[in-house]
Simulated assay, not measured.
Amino acid sequence: MTKSYSAEILEAQQRTIRFGLTCPEISSTCERLLTPERHEQFPYAVRDAVGDLGLEAVVAQCLSLHWRLKEPLEEFFGVPILYTIGYVHTPPSYMFRQSESDLLRLLQTGIQGPQLNIHAWLTLPSAEIIDLSLPTSFAVVNKMKDGLGGVIAAHADELNHGLRYHPMLLGEDYLRRIGALVEFNTYGI
């Protein structure tokens, strides 16, 4: 049986603390926050927060994009949102998969180059996730028109086609410690 996303979030919280990182508090609710009304207003909230996003602002920019959107979307939803680092299962393969030992090694050595094989998204207290970069990045890498400008915004346990998000760490402290937040500053963050 597959673990629930909420159970994986709790494991990510424990891992974050075990790594000696600052861990944000987790709040939870059973109430769905991604209502039809919110889905309708969502593109405008994103545009108001970061402007119109071109491909260059989305493709391979998950770390900075979701960091920039965290606070404005907290205001939009009226709840604290978790900046979530992890990997994604897109059957039959995994994207951005890092083991706990891989993450710990990176924490000890820091980033060594411009490429960083991790993924980030936002998690609402309802275990709903928001990922504005994966569909477009996937479409560009695979030279597909389907998916460009796409957004994943749904309950993490109810995604289609076997898609599954696996949180590994919570908050931005990991990125600061490995040297990735320095890169964010070049993008105005």
Results as ranks from 00 to 15, higher is better:
Ile111Val: 14
Asp102Glu: 04
Ile129Ala: 08
Glu128Phe: 05
Leu104Val: 00
Ala120Met: 02
Ser133Trp: 06
Leu107Gly: 00
Leu107Cys: 00
Pro92Ser: 03
Arg105Ile: 00
Thr136Asn: 15
Pro114Lys: 07
Leu106Met: 05
Ser99Met: 00
Glu128Ala: 07
Leu132Asn: 15
Leu122Met: 10
Ala120Glu: 06
Leu104His: 07
His89Ile: 10
Asp102Val: 04
Gln108Asn: 02
Glu128Asn: 10
Ser137Tyr: 09
Gly78Ser: 06
Pro114Tyr: 08
Tyr83Ile: 05
Glu100Tyr: 01
Pro114Met: 04
Ser126Cys: 04
Arg97Asp: 09
Ile118Met: 12
Pro92Trp: 01
His119Asp: 05
Leu132Trp: 09
Leu124Trp: 09
Leu116Met: 06
Ser133Leu: 09
Gly78Asp: 08
Leu124Asp: 13
Glu128Lys: 01
Thr136Phe: 10
His119Ala: 03
Ala127Pro: 01
Gln115Tyr: 11
Asn117His: 03
Leu107Pro: 00
Ser137Gly: 14
Glu128Tyr: 08
Ile111Gln: 14
Pro114Ile: 04
Asn117Asp: 08
Ser101Ile: 03
Ala127Gln: 10
Pro80Met: 09
Ser93Gly: 10
Thr136Val: 10
Gln98Arg: 11
Val141Met: 13
Ser126Gly: 07
Pro91Met: 02
Gly78Cys: 08
Thr109Cys: 01
Pro91Asp: 04
Ala127Asp: 15
Leu107Met: 02
Ser101Trp: 02
Thr136Cys: 08
Ser93Gln: 13
Ser137Met: 10
Gln115Asp: 15
Thr109Asp: 01
Phe138Leu: 15
Val141Lys: 15
Ser101Lys: 02
Ala139His: 05
Pro114Val: 07
Glu100Trp: 01
Gly86Ala: 12
Asn117Lys: 13
Thr90Glu: 15
Gly110Leu: 05
Tyr87Ser: 15
Tyr83Val: 12
Thr109Val: 09
Pro91Asn: 05
Leu82Val: 07
Pro92Leu: 02
Ile85Arg: 08
Ser126Leu: 03
Ile111Glu: 09
Thr136Gln: 14
Thr136Lys: 13
Pro135Glu: 09
Phe138Tyr: 15
Pro91Phe: 03
Gly110Trp: 03
Gln98Trp: 01
Pro125Gln: 08
Asp131Ile: 07
Leu106Glu: 03
Ile118Pro: 01
Gln115Ala: 13
Gln108Asp: 06
Glu128Ile: 06
Ala120Ser: 15
Ile130His: 06
Leu103Asn: 01
Asn142Cys: 12
Val79Ser: 11
Leu124Tyr: 14
His119Trp: 01
Pro91Thr: 02
Asp131Leu: 07
Leu82Gly: 08
Arg105Cys: 00
Gly86Met: 09
Ser101Asp: 12
Ser137Asp: 11
Ser126Asp: 12
Gly86Asn: 10
Ile111Phe: 04
Ser93Asp: 13
Ile118Tyr: 05
Leu82Ala: 08
Leu107Ala: 00
Met95Val: 03
Gly78Glu: 05
Leu116Lys: 03
Leu107Thr: 04
Leu104Trp: 00
Asp131Lys: 11
Thr84Val: 05
Gly113Glu: 12
Pro91Val: 03
Asn142His: 15
Val79Glu: 10
Tyr94Gly: 01
Gly78Pro: 10
Asn142Glu: 15
Leu124Ile: 05
Leu107Lys: 04
Leu134Cys: 11
Gly86Pro: 11
Phe138Thr: 13
Gln98Thr: 02
Ile111Trp: 04
Gln112Met: 12
Phe96Lys: 02
Gln112Thr: 14
Thr84Ala: 08
Gly110Ala: 07
Arg105Glu: 04
